[in-house]
Design a protein around this nucleic acid. Structure first.
Length: 451
DNA sequence: TCTGGGGTCCTAGGACCC
DNA sequence: TCTGGGGTCCTAGGACCC
């Protein structure tokens, strides 16, 4: 490549690229503390089963994220446990995104509580810019943020971990290796439990040690990820994923400067059940509800799905003792079945029908106690607008449900005005009575994370 | 201490076609 | 009647992230 030589255009680009990573401190817990004054200043954990987020006061008492709540309570008996509210959190997140968008060329919202921004040029001191962002977020939302600045996303994100809570850390050009070298390898994004374990067998524990490993050896051992490790250990950008991505114009502010990424690959909705069950009727009801929610999210993003997967999480024991005796093998903890959708669809009625068929086939083959139900819509593509679709396909095209589409359009409008619960899809109505129903839908097991 | 939900990306093996 | 190889798509599963 021409531009790979020293001093070439790519090198210049890299030197100039400046990415800011922003992470909202103790996000879900902070949202609760800001909206429920009684919890302010108290040790607070948000989550169901495990800690999704905890306040500073809980942290200093030894409560950590991802820790089972039982353990958290043991360490901190006065802990207040809150279910959280995903919809409310999303509104806070959106406001933070808007604020950052005033200061940056573009913003990419990556997860619930963090985002990347691309800073323009060298005109402004990045520390000064980050300070202004922090002050503005504090003023307008009450939230505290930590920020990292670096030449790549990886560097910016690692800088943020140094800045927590509430601080700002800039990895200046030229200081990358000094910054990375002492870190344990598992701090590099992409190095999880398994990879760290494998590296440890080679006595590789820090980034400095990782940097001594031959490039081809890494590639042979870890494949594509090995190549990425080589680059990340040097603070070099690895692929398009290390630059701030394009925005979703439709889903973000029209013509605006921030949004979610435009290339969403899949949309899934999953929930644990309040009680494990093998009752096909209640499983169908819950799956119908989840497909309806996922389909709505799909349409909001102007997408259709060419793939649908159903997942069942099994209660301990997996298949029944009877089945285990018949076919002695390690019992699976989950069952999964998927199908390609041709033509692709975003129609609730079509998607529900397919999902239920998959569920039925799983239940026919396995006798099991189910504790978790989920649906995933994948292979997403841009939707063709309804009007055009009518010209492109005949009314009787199999799998294309024009009546269903009209129903969805009406449904989406109705729900935009009166809330999701205004109408429920077919079998989902069976959940009435057994689950609390609010304006935005049923209260599922984990309200802090389920939309 | 034994557990949440929503994502991304990679790989392996099989089906199928030319 | 038996024999090749490559490309592509599909499915299932796993590692990893916050």
């Amino acid at each position: 490549m021409v531009d790979s030589k020293p001093g070439g255009p790519r090198r210049k680009l890299r030197a100039r690229a400046r990415i800011l990573h922003l992470d909202i401190d103790a996000f879900l817990a902070s949202v609760v503390q800001l909206t429920e004054p009684a919890t302010f200043g108290q040790p607070l954990a948000v989550g169901t089963g495990v800690v999704a987020s905890r306040s500073y006061e809980a942290k200093v008492r030894g409560v950590e994220t991802a820790m089972p709540l039982s353990e958290a309570r043991r360490r901190c008996p006065e802990l207040i446990v809150h279910e959280g509210d995903a919809a409310l959190a999303m509104r806070f997140r959106k406001r933070v995104g808007e604020i950052v968008g005033r200061f940056a060329a573009r913003v990419e919202l990556t997860s619930l509580d963090d985002m990347y921004a691309e800073l323009q040029g060298h005109a402004t001191d990045p520390i000064d810019l980050a300070s202004r962002i922090r002050a503005q977020v504090r003023t307008e939302t009450g939230l505290s943020v930590a920020q990292g600045i670096g030449a790549t996303k990886t560097l910016a994100r690692l800088a943020t971990t140094k800045a927590k809570p509430g601080g700002i850390h800039w990895v200046r050009p030229g200081a990358e290796r000094r910054f990375l070298d002492p870190m344990p390898v598992e701090m590099l994004p992409g190095v999880g439990h398994k990879t760290a374990e494998t590296l440890a067998t080679y006595r590789i524990r820090t980034v400095a040690e990782l940097r001594l490993v031959d490039r081809t050896l890494l590639a042979e051992t870890f494949g594509v990820r090995g190549e990425e490790l080589y680059l990340k250990a040097r603070g070099l950008p690895c692929g398009a994923g290390d630059f701030v991505r394009e925005l979703d114009v439709e889903h973000g502010r029209p013509g605006g400067s921030w949004g979610e990424t435009s290339d969403t690959r899949e949309i899934s909705r999953t929930t644990s059940l309040w009680e494990a069950t093998s009752d096909p009727e209640s499983l169908r009801a819950m799956l119908t509800y989840l497909v309806d929610r996922a389909a709505k999210a799909l349409r909001e993003r102007g997408r259709i799905a060419a793939r649908l997967d159903v997942v069942l999480g099994l209660a301990s024991g997996g298949p029944s003792a009877f089945e285990a005796r018949e076919r002695p093998r390690r019992s699976p903890t989950s069952l999964h079945r998927g199908i390609a959708l041709a033509p692709p669809s975003s129609t609730t009625r079509v998607l529900v029908e397919r999902a239920i068929a998959l569920l039925e086939s799983l239940l026919d083959e396995h006798r099991c106690l189910v504790r978790l139900v989920g649906v995933r819509l994948g292979r997403l593509r841009m939707a063709v607008h309804g009007q055009q679709e009518r010209f492109l396909f005949a009314e009787d095209e199999p799998g294309l449900d024009l009546r269903g589409q009209r129903i969805d359009t009406a449904l989406d409008h109705l729900r935009a005005r009166h809330g999701f619960a205004a109408v429920l899809a077919g079998e989902a109505n069976a959940l009435r009575g057994s689950l609390a129903l609010g304006r935005d839908g049923f209260r599922l097991r984990t309200p802090s994370l389920t939309l």
